[in-house]
Design a protein around this nucleic acid. Sequence first.
DNA 1: TTGGTTTAGTGGTTAAACCAATGAGCCCCG
DNA 2: CGGGGCTCATTGGTTTAACCACTAAACCAA
Lengths: 260, 260
Amino acid sequence: MSPVAPLARVARPVDAVVERLRRDILDGRYPEGGHLPPERTLALGLGVSRLTLRAALARLEAEGLVRARQGDGVRVLELSQHGTLSVLAHLDLSRRPLVVRSFLELRRAVAVEAVALACERASDEAIAHLEALAEAQAREPDDAAYARRDVEFARQVLKASESFATLLVFNALVPVYEAHPALARALLADRQRSLAGYAATVALLRARDAQSARGLVRGALEAVDEAVLAALSPASAPARGVKAKRPKQPKPTKKRGAAR
Amino acid sequence: MSPVAPLARVARPVDAVVERLRRDILDGRYPEGGHLPPERTLALGLGVSRLTLRAALARLEAEGLVRARQGDGVRVLELSQHGTLSVLAHLDLSRRPLVVRSFLELRRAVAVEAVALACERASDEAIAHLEALAEAQAREPDDAAYARRDVEFARQVLKASESFATLLVFNALVPVYEAHPALARALLADRQRSLAGYAATVALLRARDAQSARGLVRGALEAVDEAVLAALSPASAPARGVKAKRPKQPKPTKKRGAAR
DNA sequence: TTGGTTTAGTGGTTAAACCAATGAGCCCCG
DNA sequence: CGGGGCTCATTGGTTTAACCACTAAACCAA
């Protein structure tokens, strides 16, 4: 579409502070349950005003990373209890293969549900629109544009499923591979498989059979995810912990539509 | 546990502002894509300082509701594109039955995946711990304590599944029925079914059969969710839009463990 | 019409100061 | 000696007023 760069957002001081603190917290520099230094101290150390620091803390609080209490201080919350999906995009995934695996598992669960629900609820117009999107993908040479339309395809499936909460989860998944190009590349590396996935998805929606769609989508995505994990692990075994399950459905599904 | 109130968080001005703005936005008082009034004007109108208003806007920005751009203004983002799961807890669910339905669908998808993964990964100790939790529930007279331990049970299943991303989704689901007592009550209304669900979950984990667990958990939860939707809809038909699908598995599953 | 320049309006940041809640330690009283 | 209430240093919460930086639109000139 546009030959020029998409123009990244300018870095404001508050953004830098947010990222710095978030990294320090996620890296365990401030242990869970412990206190951050007092605002005045922290602001001085970071070279920003206390108010800018407070703006950053407000964002981190919304992400479920910290909690400020007047008179006490700023505590680091337990990620496993208060963390939100948004932290996924800020973890160093290259060092955490198990988190990548869990990301793919969540994506898979969302995709399976979305396609199944869409089988029951998608309008014929919506299905036709999806088919048009898929055909446009087949003629798309540019990788970035392909990736963008892949997200769009998934989002349309989600909308067709009429499941608002599931769509919100998807919104949180998108920034994850925007922040991790290697992951995004691995997911779309096999373009032939990707295209087959679009077609299979459209076919499943036309069939209107939610029950069998679940199994087919799951099977296809498990194969994709296994390949992705293998591609991402440096040179070791095919990604530890994945129990290698490849159903080999009768139909050559290759579905991967919904939770991209 | 504690006979006294759980000690609600004191209402700070910034919290009031956040809630007010969030409600105004979600109610459509500020249309998506449009601008909020300038900060100075808004602050004046709300009776707080501009800085307090800014702290509130920072939180709303983290929730994906608005986006501030220097020189331009504060724009209301499209919920379907940038909204996060946290908004679910702040919608007036009593007026949006379809959102409740989608919440249950997401919860179901998460629960199915969590139990299935836990089947493959849960340690024997973790399963024993879950069983102990379930037995404690059977002897729990207090509703609030019961609800609390129900969340704990689900969280332990999630942890046993070793799927970090899925756990993060769960963290976002908990505040939803904390904010909607009617929903929480409906979910735990049938205590006998709830207790049977715990037992069935433990049995499934012991069986170590992920594949069949998916079907059983899904079937049981679909029955639960249908009952919940019926209980929540005032007096009309059994909740519009739900296609009434009750697989009737051979085993009397009644599972409802994971995504409560 | 096109291109650059100006300008008004917007969010972004800072400073210093005061308010308010917390929790630990102290002191007094029993 | 023990318990209970109080004090106070510490910490986050809020305000004021001012200035900086960016954006978009209006304006003007080629």
